[in-house]
């Protein structure tokens, strides 16, 4: 053991403080989370089949409704219900699709309501296309330019479950003029409960062609 007195010297203090400051600056200013956390966003439009690796997704129809009539309950919109019909086709294993969120042009976010047979999440397996209808209660000024974000990871906790995972963002294609018309229309929609997607049985003209595409796509294509 060495005996003797060491001094706290200016140079030693400056060295330590400088190192701590430099470390703090690195942690604070380097964009360390970017690239590690960001989801893989697959963009598309209604009718297009999107490959999310774990599933193929098609937004088959976009509607609005003031009233949703389900088998057990009827729901009246506070704003208007943005009704988004989709088909999911899992490609690897049984998958729960927990993420469904609408984002408007101002960046506000809206979550679906599981009212009147509308889905808040869907579970399906490979081997078939599964139909689900999401209903979002949104204000009038959210319609124009709205996009829907669908994924297997839930959107709660700032999209924590979607980190580094594929996420579909579909532009619903609502123009400002169309938004006015959609808002004024007093539609009653009877959302179909989730089920096997049978082409031709849907109510959307756009849905038929795109669902057909899904079955000829590269389902299970990681062979």
């Amino acid at each position: 053991m060495r005996h003797g007195r060491r001094r706290i010297t200016w140079s030693g203090t400056a060295l330590v403080l400088g190192a701590v400051t430099a470390g703090c600056a690195l942690v604070t200013y380097l964009p360390q989370d970017q690239g590690l956390d960001t989801p893989v966003v697959v963009e598309g439009v209604p009718g297009e089949t999107l490959d999310l690796t774990y599933a193929e997704l098609t937004v088959t129809d976009v509607r609005v409704a003031d009233t949703l009539e389900g088998t057990t309950e009827t729901a009246v919109a506070g704003g208007t219900f943005l009704v988004v019909d989709v088909t999911w086709r899992a490609t690897r294993t049984q998958t729960t699709f927990a993420g469904a969120e609408v984002t408007d042009s101002q960046g506000r976010r809206f979550w679906p309501s599981a009212l009147g047979d509308c889905a808040a999440s869907a579970t399906s397996q490979p081997g078939y296309a599964w139909r689900a209808t999401y209903c979002f209660d949104v204000p009038e000024d959210a319609l124009a330019g709205a996009t829907v974000r669908l994924a297997r990871g839930s959107q709660s906790e700032e999209h924590a479950e979607q980190r580094r995972d594929a996420v579909a963002v579909v532009d619903l294609g609502i123009t400002a003029g169309a938004a006015r018309t959609l808002w004024d229309a007093a539609e009653t929609v009877r959302p179909e409960p989730q089920g096997f997607a049978v082409p031709g049985a849907g109510d959307a003209a756009t849905g038929d062609a795109s669902t057909g595409d899904a079955s000829t796509g590269d389902a299970g294509g990681d062979a």
Partner: peptide, 9 residues
Amino acid sequence: RSILNPGVT
């Protein structure tokens, strides 16, 4: 309603 979306009264 378990959730309340922004801007809807």
